[in-house]
Amino acid sequence: MFTLFQTELYKIFRRPRTYIAFAAITALITIVQLGLKMDGKEYAAFVMADLNNTFQIDGKIINGYFVCYVVLQLLLVHVPLLIALIAADMISGEANMGTLRLLLTKPVGRTEFILAKFLAATVYTLLLLVWVAVLALFVSMWLFGTDDMFLLKNSYAVQIERVDIFWRYAGAFGFAALAMTTVAALGFFLSQFAENSIGPIVATMSVIIVCTILSTMSIPLFNKIKPYLFTTHMVAWKEFFDVKVNDSNETIRGTIQNPDKLIRSSLVLFFHIVAFVGASVYVFKKKDVLS
Protein backbone atom coordinates (compact mmCIF):
# COMPACT_ATOMS: atom_id res chain seq x y z
CA MET A 1 0.00 0.00 0.00
CA PHE A 2 2.93 2.34 0.75
CA THR A 3 4.21 1.93 -2.81
CA LEU A 4 0.76 2.73 -4.11
CA PHE A 5 0.63 5.79 -1.84
CA GLN A 6 4.04 6.93 -3.15
CA THR A 7 2.88 6.44 -6.72
CA GLU A 8 -0.25 8.50 -6.05
CA LEU A 9 1.81 11.29 -4.50
CA TYR A 10 4.12 11.26 -7.51
CA LYS A 11 1.12 11.51 -9.82
CA ILE A 12 -0.35 14.44 -7.88
CA PHE A 13 2.85 16.45 -7.84
CA ARG A 14 3.68 15.69 -11.46
CA ARG A 15 0.53 17.45 -12.66
CA PRO A 16 0.83 21.21 -13.30
CA ARG A 17 -2.71 21.63 -11.96
CA THR A 18 -1.43 20.84 -8.46
CA TYR A 19 0.72 23.95 -8.42
CA ILE A 20 -2.15 26.23 -9.38
CA ALA A 21 -3.33 26.04 -5.75
CA PHE A 22 0.14 26.91 -4.40
CA ALA A 23 0.44 29.80 -6.87
CA ALA A 24 -3.07 31.06 -6.06
CA ILE A 25 -2.37 30.99 -2.33
CA THR A 26 0.95 32.78 -2.80
CA ALA A 27 -0.77 35.49 -4.86
CA LEU A 28 -3.66 35.93 -2.41
CA ILE A 29 -1.45 36.15 0.67
CA THR A 30 1.02 38.47 -1.02
CA ILE A 31 -1.83 40.79 -2.06
CA VAL A 32 -3.19 40.95 1.50
CA GLN A 33 0.30 41.48 2.97
CA LEU A 34 1.15 44.15 0.44
CA GLY A 35 -2.15 45.93 1.07
CA LEU A 36 -1.67 45.88 4.84
CA LYS A 37 1.96 46.94 4.53
CA MET A 38 0.99 49.95 2.41
CA ASP A 39 -2.27 50.92 4.12
CA GLY A 40 -2.30 48.98 7.37
CA LYS A 41 -2.98 52.07 9.49
CA GLU A 42 -6.04 52.94 7.40
CA TYR A 43 -7.32 49.39 7.73
CA ALA A 44 -6.77 49.40 11.49
CA ALA A 45 -8.55 52.76 11.79
CA PHE A 46 -11.51 51.41 9.80
CA VAL A 47 -11.81 48.21 11.81
CA MET A 48 -11.23 49.98 15.14
CA ALA A 49 -13.49 52.95 14.35
CA ASP A 50 -16.09 51.97 16.94
CA LEU A 51 -13.54 51.43 19.71
CA ASN A 52 -11.50 54.48 18.78
CA ASN A 53 -14.45 56.69 19.74
CA THR A 54 -13.96 55.76 23.37
CA PHE A 55 -10.44 54.41 23.63
CA GLN A 56 -6.95 55.24 22.60
CA ILE A 57 -5.26 52.03 21.55
CA ASP A 58 -1.49 52.26 21.30
CA GLY A 59 0.88 49.61 20.03
CA LYS A 60 1.56 47.68 16.88
CA ILE A 61 -1.99 46.57 16.00
CA ILE A 62 -0.98 45.53 12.49
CA ASN A 63 1.65 42.95 13.37
CA GLY A 64 2.56 39.55 11.94
CA TYR A 65 0.16 37.63 14.17
CA PHE A 66 -2.75 39.92 13.32
CA VAL A 67 -2.00 39.80 9.60
CA CYS A 68 -1.92 35.99 9.72
CA TYR A 69 -5.34 35.99 11.39
CA VAL A 70 -6.76 38.28 8.70
CA VAL A 71 -5.27 36.09 5.97
CA LEU A 72 -6.67 32.91 7.50
CA GLN A 73 -10.11 34.47 7.88
CA LEU A 74 -10.13 35.37 4.21
CA LEU A 75 -8.33 32.33 2.88
CA LEU A 76 -9.81 29.39 4.73
CA VAL A 77 -13.05 30.08 2.85
CA HIS A 78 -11.29 29.68 -0.49
CA VAL A 79 -8.74 26.95 0.21
CA PRO A 80 -11.48 24.26 0.10
CA LEU A 81 -12.08 25.16 -3.54
CA LEU A 82 -8.39 24.60 -4.29
CA ILE A 83 -8.41 21.30 -2.44
CA ALA A 84 -11.41 20.18 -4.47
CA LEU A 85 -9.30 20.62 -7.62
CA ILE A 86 -7.17 17.65 -6.64
CA ALA A 87 -9.28 15.57 -4.26
CA ALA A 88 -12.32 15.45 -6.55
CA ASP A 89 -10.09 14.34 -9.39
CA MET A 90 -8.52 11.37 -7.63
CA ILE A 91 -10.86 8.65 -8.94
CA SER A 92 -12.74 10.48 -11.70
CA GLY A 93 -9.42 11.58 -13.25
CA GLU A 94 -8.30 7.96 -13.57
CA ALA A 95 -11.71 7.03 -14.99
CA ASN A 96 -11.47 9.88 -17.47
CA MET A 97 -8.05 8.75 -18.67
CA GLY A 98 -9.17 5.13 -18.75
CA THR A 99 -6.49 3.98 -16.32
CA LEU A 100 -8.72 3.03 -13.40
CA ARG A 101 -9.41 -0.53 -14.63
CA LEU A 102 -5.75 -0.96 -15.44
CA LEU A 103 -4.73 0.11 -11.93
CA LEU A 104 -7.12 -2.37 -10.39
CA THR A 105 -5.41 -5.21 -12.19
CA LYS A 106 -2.54 -4.80 -9.72
CA PRO A 107 -2.53 -7.22 -6.78
CA VAL A 108 -3.90 -4.63 -4.37
CA GLY A 109 -7.24 -4.74 -2.59
CA ARG A 110 -9.82 -2.09 -3.46
CA THR A 111 -9.86 -0.80 0.14
CA GLU A 112 -6.09 -0.34 0.15
CA PHE A 113 -6.27 1.25 -3.29
CA ILE A 114 -8.86 3.80 -2.19
CA LEU A 115 -7.12 4.50 1.14
CA ALA A 116 -3.78 5.07 -0.60
CA LYS A 117 -5.43 7.55 -2.95
CA PHE A 118 -7.16 9.33 -0.07
CA LEU A 119 -3.93 9.51 1.93
CA ALA A 120 -2.17 11.07 -1.06
CA ALA A 121 -4.96 13.67 -1.34
CA THR A 122 -4.60 14.33 2.40
CA VAL A 123 -0.85 14.87 2.08
CA TYR A 124 -1.50 17.38 -0.71
CA THR A 125 -4.02 19.15 1.55
CA LEU A 126 -1.59 19.26 4.46
CA LEU A 127 1.24 20.57 2.27
CA LEU A 128 -1.06 23.31 1.05
CA LEU A 129 -1.73 24.27 4.66
CA VAL A 130 1.97 24.19 5.50
CA TRP A 131 2.51 26.57 2.59
CA VAL A 132 -0.25 28.83 3.97
CA ALA A 133 1.42 28.73 7.40
CA VAL A 134 4.83 29.61 5.97
CA LEU A 135 3.51 32.55 3.98
CA ALA A 136 0.76 33.82 6.26
CA LEU A 137 2.47 33.34 9.60
CA PHE A 138 6.22 33.27 9.22
CA VAL A 139 6.54 35.71 6.32
CA SER A 140 4.05 38.08 8.05
CA MET A 141 6.06 37.86 11.28
CA TRP A 142 9.16 38.76 9.31
CA LEU A 143 7.44 41.57 7.39
CA PHE A 144 5.36 43.12 10.17
CA GLY A 145 7.12 42.07 13.36
CA THR A 146 5.28 40.72 16.39
CA ASP A 147 3.25 42.20 19.22
CA ASP A 148 0.14 41.39 21.20
CA MET A 149 -2.88 40.42 19.15
CA PHE A 150 -5.92 42.65 19.35
CA LEU A 151 -8.94 40.98 17.80
CA LEU A 152 -12.47 42.22 17.37
CA LYS A 153 -15.33 39.81 17.91
CA ASN A 154 -19.01 40.60 17.35
CA SER A 155 -19.69 41.86 20.86
CA TYR A 156 -16.26 42.20 22.46
CA ALA A 157 -12.57 42.65 21.80
CA VAL A 158 -9.74 40.34 22.88
CA GLN A 159 -6.13 41.18 23.56
CA ILE A 160 -3.82 38.18 23.57
CA GLU A 161 -0.28 38.55 24.87
CA ARG A 162 2.52 38.00 22.38
CA VAL A 163 3.96 35.08 24.34
CA ASP A 164 0.57 33.38 24.38
CA ILE A 165 -0.03 33.35 20.62
CA PHE A 166 2.24 30.90 18.84
CA TRP A 167 0.75 27.73 20.33
CA ARG A 168 -2.68 29.03 19.32
CA TYR A 169 -1.56 29.14 15.69
CA ALA A 170 -0.17 25.61 15.99
CA GLY A 171 -3.61 24.54 17.26
CA ALA A 172 -5.46 26.60 14.64
CA PHE A 173 -3.45 25.09 11.78
CA GLY A 174 -3.95 21.62 13.25
CA PHE A 175 -7.67 22.26 13.34
CA ALA A 176 -7.60 23.71 9.82
CA ALA A 177 -5.89 20.50 8.69
CA LEU A 178 -8.84 18.54 10.06
CA ALA A 179 -11.31 20.90 8.36
CA MET A 180 -9.52 20.78 5.01
CA THR A 181 -9.19 17.01 5.19
CA THR A 182 -12.98 16.92 5.53
CA VAL A 183 -13.23 18.86 2.28
CA ALA A 184 -10.74 16.48 0.67
CA ALA A 185 -12.82 13.52 1.88
CA LEU A 186 -15.99 15.06 0.42
CA GLY A 187 -14.31 15.73 -2.93
CA PHE A 188 -12.82 12.26 -2.89
CA PHE A 189 -16.23 10.69 -2.19
CA LEU A 190 -17.89 12.62 -5.02
CA SER A 191 -15.14 11.67 -7.44
CA GLN A 192 -16.48 8.09 -7.43
CA PHE A 193 -19.59 9.05 -9.30
CA ALA A 194 -18.26 10.53 -12.50
CA GLU A 195 -15.97 9.65 -15.32
CA ASN A 196 -14.68 13.18 -15.79
CA SER A 197 -13.03 15.55 -13.32
CA ILE A 198 -15.18 18.63 -13.88
CA GLY A 199 -18.38 17.13 -12.43
CA PRO A 200 -17.01 16.14 -8.99
CA ILE A 201 -14.92 19.33 -8.70
CA VAL A 202 -17.94 21.54 -9.42
CA ALA A 203 -20.17 19.37 -7.22
CA THR A 204 -17.72 19.66 -4.30
CA MET A 205 -17.47 23.41 -4.72
CA SER A 206 -21.27 23.68 -4.93
CA VAL A 207 -21.78 21.65 -1.75
CA ILE A 208 -19.24 23.82 0.08
CA ILE A 209 -20.76 27.08 -1.17
CA VAL A 210 -24.35 26.06 -0.34
CA CYS A 211 -23.40 24.73 3.10
CA THR A 212 -21.30 27.84 3.84
CA ILE A 213 -24.25 30.08 2.97
CA LEU A 214 -26.54 28.00 5.19
CA SER A 215 -23.96 28.17 7.99
CA THR A 216 -23.59 31.94 7.85
CA MET A 217 -27.25 32.97 7.49
CA SER A 218 -29.02 33.71 10.76
CA ILE A 219 -32.45 32.44 9.79
CA PRO A 220 -34.32 30.33 12.39
CA LEU A 221 -35.14 27.61 9.84
CA PHE A 222 -31.48 27.15 8.97
CA ASN A 223 -30.36 27.39 12.59
CA LYS A 224 -31.78 23.91 13.18
CA ILE A 225 -29.61 22.29 10.53
CA LYS A 226 -26.48 24.37 11.13
CA PRO A 227 -24.99 22.11 13.82
CA TYR A 228 -24.99 19.19 11.37
CA LEU A 229 -23.20 21.02 8.56
CA PHE A 230 -19.45 20.55 8.43
CA THR A 231 -19.04 24.11 7.14
CA THR A 232 -20.40 25.40 10.48
CA HIS A 233 -17.58 23.64 12.30
CA MET A 234 -14.83 24.47 9.82
CA VAL A 235 -14.51 28.01 11.22
CA ALA A 236 -14.10 26.82 14.82
CA TRP A 237 -10.31 27.37 14.55
CA LYS A 238 -11.09 30.93 15.66
CA GLU A 239 -11.88 29.54 19.11
CA PHE A 240 -8.13 29.27 19.65
CA PHE A 241 -8.07 33.05 19.63
CA ASP A 242 -10.50 33.69 22.44
CA VAL A 243 -9.25 33.75 26.01
CA LYS A 244 -10.90 33.08 29.36
CA VAL A 245 -11.00 35.86 31.94
CA ASN A 246 -10.97 35.70 35.74
CA ASP A 247 -13.37 37.49 38.10
CA SER A 248 -11.40 40.71 37.69
CA ASN A 249 -11.84 40.53 33.91
CA GLU A 250 -8.13 39.79 33.36
CA THR A 251 -7.26 37.35 30.63
CA ILE A 252 -5.81 34.02 31.77
CA ARG A 253 -2.76 33.05 29.76
CA GLY A 254 -2.89 29.68 28.04
CA THR A 255 -6.68 29.32 28.12
CA ILE A 256 -9.36 28.98 25.46
CA GLN A 257 -12.82 30.46 26.04
CA ASN A 258 -14.81 27.54 24.60
CA PRO A 259 -12.67 24.40 24.51
CA ASP A 260 -15.87 22.31 24.45
CA LYS A 261 -16.92 23.92 21.20
CA LEU A 262 -13.51 23.19 19.73
CA ILE A 263 -13.65 19.54 20.77
CA ARG A 264 -17.23 19.18 19.53
CA SER A 265 -16.34 20.70 16.16
CA SER A 266 -13.24 18.51 15.86
CA LEU A 267 -15.35 15.43 16.52
CA VAL A 268 -17.99 16.48 14.00
CA LEU A 269 -15.31 17.01 11.35
CA PHE A 270 -13.60 13.74 12.22
CA PHE A 271 -16.95 11.97 11.95
CA HIS A 272 -17.47 13.53 8.50
CA ILE A 273 -14.04 12.34 7.36
CA VAL A 274 -14.71 8.80 8.56
CA ALA A 275 -18.18 8.86 6.97
CA PHE A 276 -16.99 10.16 3.58
CA VAL A 277 -13.98 7.84 3.40
CA GLY A 278 -16.04 4.89 4.66
CA ALA A 279 -18.71 5.62 2.07
CA SER A 280 -16.02 5.95 -0.61
CA VAL A 281 -14.60 2.53 0.28
CA TYR A 282 -18.09 1.00 0.35
CA VAL A 283 -19.13 2.52 -2.99
CA PHE A 284 -15.83 1.69 -4.66
CA LYS A 285 -15.91 -1.91 -3.51
CA LYS A 286 -19.39 -2.32 -4.99
CA LYS A 287 -18.54 -0.37 -8.12
CA ASP A 288 -18.48 -2.00 -11.48
CA VAL A 289 -15.35 -0.43 -12.94
CA LEU A 290 -15.67 -0.15 -16.69
CA SER A 291 -13.21 2.61 -17.54
Partner: peptide, 9 residues
Protein backbone atom coordinates in the same frame (compact mmCIF):
# COMPACT_ATOMS: atom_id res chain seq x y z
CA UNK B 1 6.15 47.01 27.93
CA UNK B 2 6.07 44.99 24.72
CA UNK B 3 2.40 45.22 24.06
CA UNK B 4 -0.73 47.07 23.19
CA UNK B 5 -2.19 49.55 25.67
CA UNK B 6 -5.86 50.45 25.87
CA UNK B 7 -6.74 53.69 27.61
CA UNK B 8 -9.97 55.65 27.70
CA UNK B 9 -9.86 58.65 25.40
Amino acid sequence: DNGISILPK
